[in-house]
Write a protein that binds this DNA or RNA. Structure first.
Lengths: 190, 190, 190, 190
DNA sequence: AATGAATGAGTCTTCATTCAT
DNA sequence: GATGAATGAAGACTCATTCAT
């Protein structure tokens, strides 16, 4: 479905730039270069693209993680994970937040878990592996911890937006602190 | 400013129940028992109440923390902090999320730091005290760490909503995992 | 553009009956038998129909002038012109005034010249012809004079509204005085 | 009534700058430096200041005419009249038009004659005097002609606004043409 | 499947007017 | 007389959604 893709891409751009509330169907179809009515052949309402957008975002994040998190040392992996999430979140500017608020607004909130499932599963597996390798503490419960880690990284990523450009140094310190924080939290050894 | 208070309270209720997007000025003024035009004597637009709402939320959170975090042991304090934030967030249901998405939507995002400042400062001080007492690791940087902790707790609190009522046990495990996670992250000793 | 025509016609009727200020978009669309939103597909605001209305008015006036001003004697033409403008203005009641005040209110004032251009040009040509025929004074500058004449006739036409019905005789005297006034002004000979 | 004066002055300024429709009572009272409610102690509605404004305008015009039209030659007087009306109209920018449209909108239109009466009477008298002196044609009917002259001058004055600043020369030619036009119309001799 | 003109319910916002102080 | 906070009716304008082509 070429048209469907175009709608999703256009919606991502539009929501990202103007926010969910300010974006109109008209904005989306103009970007997608399709007619107003065509939108409704693929999605029944404005907010019903949200899950697809979120899926695209998570897909992208997963690809990036798979490609960039390659070290054998878990401590090193942690750094790579944080880096990748930060960069990805930064590229999609407001989008991450909007996905969450968009889902909230549309009672698709239950889909949150499903959408993030691949990410949680991937990280969970990594943690299990590290546990078995003895490079993190044995008391870590992989599934819950995966969720806590993702939450920490994302909330920190959002906070980093608030630093203006002259405060790059601060942003970096904040990030290093997060990495150390997570290392200790997991009892990670080299 | 009795009217102003009534508007803020009404807006909190309305946004909390129907979400920001679905709430109309008309909903707010009906609850506040004032005329439509009166709203505009105090706030220039729908979204401009958001910072005031956020301030109320943080005020409330601060009061709760001050009253409930009383232990002398830092490890115990951590448990009390998590408990309090969880409970407070739970009481205000969607509000916490809405504040963030509301601020995002309205270009008041810059105020985020200012609004949360009291909370960050309070936690930062606690961390300093614990550092001096030698009950957490000496490498903790209090200000950044305070932000990371708040982020972790809030993002976890939000995830807990997604468990339905039969999964109380899971929710509790998730919470315990967070507490342990934070303890290790801070290198907290008794 | 059938819809566009209907909007203009409806606006003429509505403005003519209730005045610009008292007329609502809702009044216009009801008369035009279209939906509220349709109006905005053709005109961006209430006042932006004004130039189109004025054009219709001038078109009509031009048709009437072309059909009714047929004498070969210029002095006779003058009478026909005054008669035609008076009658046309009378038929459109308040409209002529409203056009001017409407344009004034809406910063479309600059379009005034453009809209009246056909009328000025037409009269200007007549004056030139008469000059060459030697039936009016040679010092007349056709373009400026055309504007002055139109102004005189219209302002007098407006004043005639103020006579009530018993004062028909007065109205007629006033009109005759205008014709004589213009004749002398132009140095018109038979 | 000092307050009353202040309201009228403020209304003249406000209407002149923003137009009748766009001007709010709030604009007027701010300029007048009085409270919102005070307005209603002096005038029952927004449009009910219009007659007072018109009276001020005509008063001013009369004063100017009385002071500036002093020649003994009627032809010279004509020049002075045109000059004075042009200057006065120019000083009050949009006001002259707004008065008329304002009166139209408010069904005070009948007062038009009354308000302009002093001006018509004054000019009428001048015409009579000139007739008796034999410096204008004997067939002039002073009262109607006074109205026609005022109409011509005012409509021309309004048209002069439409010339932009580089067209000063044209504006002057247009004005000279009007003076000549009126001279001939009246059969004025030196 | 695709179009895009048309729809009209719904919302924000304005502002003349009132009235308790 | 004076105030100005409060009112709420009224209107401009938007935009998700439909449907004839």
């Amino acid at each position: 479905m070429e048209k469907r893709e175009r709608i999703i891409t256009a919606a991502i751009e539009a929501f990202g730039e103007k926010g969910v509330e300010k974006t109109t169907i008209s904005d989306i179809v103009k970007r997608a270069n399709i007619a107003q009515g065509t939108y409704y052949l693929y999605f029944p309402s404005k907010l019903s693209v949200m899950p697809d957008i979120a899926a695209v975002f998570v897909d992208y994040l997963m690809t990036e993680l798979t490609n960039n998190v390659t070290s054998s040392s878990f401590k090193q992996q942690l750094i790579e994970i944080v880096d990748t999430v930060f960069r990805t979140t930064d590229e999609h500017k407001k989008l991450a937040v909007l996905i969450y608020s968009g889902l909230t607004q549309s009672e698709h909130l239950q889909q949150w878990e499903t959408i993030y499932a691949p990410l949680y599963d991937w990280l969970s597996e990594r943690l299990e592996t590290a546990k078995q390798a003895g490079t993190i503490r044995q008391t870590v419960q992989a599934d819950y911890t995966a969720r806590i880690i993702v939450g920490s990284i994302e909330s920190t990523a959002e906070q980093l937006y608030l630093y203006n450009q002259e405060e790059d140094a601060k942003a970096n310190e904040h990030k290093q602190e997060l990495i150390q924080f997570l290392s200790y939290a997991l009892g990670a050894s080299d």
